[in-house]
């Protein structure tokens, strides 16, 4: 799998340029070129004195099992947070007052972050998990105009 550079940690030490056999690390936008990067090489990650390069794993172990009762209580909270997110979004979308809009947008963002995190800890940590696959498979039967079915197909094929 390819190497990945965390730009905010990159000290422009350039060791990655010296050791890269293909020039994959030498790009004007600082993003390592995955098409040139040799899988399993990792020379750049080992040479980087700033620790800014990591190797993205090829595969992931199954998720740690979650008990049904933990899933149930996590989902209850996630549902509530998602409702609060939507309610705040609706306020932000309809108000004419710029400060009310700003405040509602912050409340919405906060609740979406919480909903996402609580959901991750209820079986949706990994995109490759069975839970994610089951949800995607159920969406194959979702028939509404404008629904991006192509995205579901792509995910079921690639993940």
């Amino acid at each position: 799998m390819p190497a990945f550079r965390n730009v905010s940690m990159c000290g422009k030490d350039c060791m990655c340029l010296y050791v890269c056999p293909t020039g994959a690390t030498d790009t004007e936008d600082s993003i390592i070129d995955v098409n040139k990067c040799i899988s399993g090489c990792s020379a750049c990650a080992q040479a980087c004195p700033s620790g800014a390069i990591s190797i993205v794993p090829e595969s992931y172990p199954p998720q740690q099992p979650k008990s049904p009762e933990v899933i149930a209580t996590q989902r209850k909270l996630a549902y509530s947070k998602a409702q609060q997110w939507q309610a705040a979004e609706a306020i932000a979308a309809t108000t004419d007052n710029p400060i009310t809009k700003q405040f509602a947008t912050a409340i919405a963002a906060s609740n979406l972050r919480m909903a996402e995190d609580i959901l991750r800890e209820s079986g949706y940590m990994l995109p490759q998990s069975n839970e994610a696959r089951k949800l995607l498979e159920s969406l194959l039967e979702y028939e509404e105009p404008g629904f991006p079915k192509g995205a579901v197909d792509l995910l079921l094929k690639k993940l």
């Binding site: 149930a72 989902r75 998602a82 409702q83 979406l112 909903a115 959901l119 979702y142």
Partner: peptide, 23 residues
Amino acid sequence: NHNGIDNFTTLTAGEISAICSSL
């Protein structure tokens, strides 16, 4: 309705959206 069995009939649109943005 929140029994932990997930598909688009038991999850709200907001929940599916949050799951997908997280993934």
